[in-house]
Design a protein around this nucleic acid. Structure first.
Lengths: 125, 125
DNA sequence: CTAGAAGCTCACATGGATGTCAGGGGCAAG
DNA sequence: CTTGCCCCTGACATCCATGTGAGCTTCTAG
């Protein structure tokens, strides 16, 4: 498929897809006229890249651990594997932090609703 | 306390503290000479703001739901409470997404380690 | 063949939180 | 009074993913 279709399939802008290629995150084969062509696999890869972005990784970091994805058995994935473990732990800590934040929000909302009730009772009584 | 101490206590840069004030997230009393002074409560507030930033909220959004924190019983927190519920749900969805990403990383790492084992056996044998 | 949709490259713009620098004031200790 | 440290405002700089526009080429449908 060409870049337009990949974009609409993945929901990622054409601009971003070109940027991913520029950053070494995504490969494309070129037609003789220079147009990019992709296989279905690339769509999955784009989705995965999006996941990692959402997890707070930079394109540089993603590039560092992609060897691990592409060829799990390669020796050069040594550093990548370690990097991935590191990012995995960072992500895990981040998740824990977000859960605490969600709890805090829940607590605040409960407090607010309680105050609201207190206001309503005198009006009802 | 003055801004320097608040900064070192919270680990947030002086620049950022002034920015928070500019965005209406943080208040300060000023000495006659114009220097900012804070109470211990402000330190907690800064920590909370940091939490929300980490949860992906923008300063604008944080400002929108702070009334809910400051005066839970105020009527004007109506919109804020709704906004907070909305952000809470967004956060919850985001957490779920991050957990899936972490699982994906775990899967990748397991695959890599498995390949590594396969490589080691022939060498050992 | 022609018109329009889609691709290409290059390059500049944007937004948001933060860094950094310049130029100046406030205040405590020597 | 001076030295040193902290604070003030204002403004410009930075990073990074993405938007956007110009100018040009390529593909596709009629």
């Amino acid at each position: 498929m060409r870049i337009g279709e990949l974009a609409s399939r993945t929901g990622v802008s054409i601009r971003s897809l070109r940027y991913y290629e520029e950053q070494g995150l995504l490969a494309s084969t070129r037609s003789t006229s220079g147009q990019r062509h992709y296989t279905d696999d690339e769509a999955e890869r784009v989705a995965f890249i999006q996941r990692l972005y959402a997890a707070g990784l930079s394109s540089r970091t993603i590039a560092e651990l992609l060897p691990c994805v592409d060829s799990p058995s390669a020796e050069n994935s040594d550093a990548a594997l370690e990097r991935m473990a590191q990012e995995r732990d960072r992500l895990s800590a981040h998740i824990a932090d977000l859960v605490r934040t969600r709890d805090a929000l829940d607590g605040l909302m409960a407090t607010n609703r309680a105050h609201r009730e207190q206001l309503r009772v005198p009006l009802a009584g």
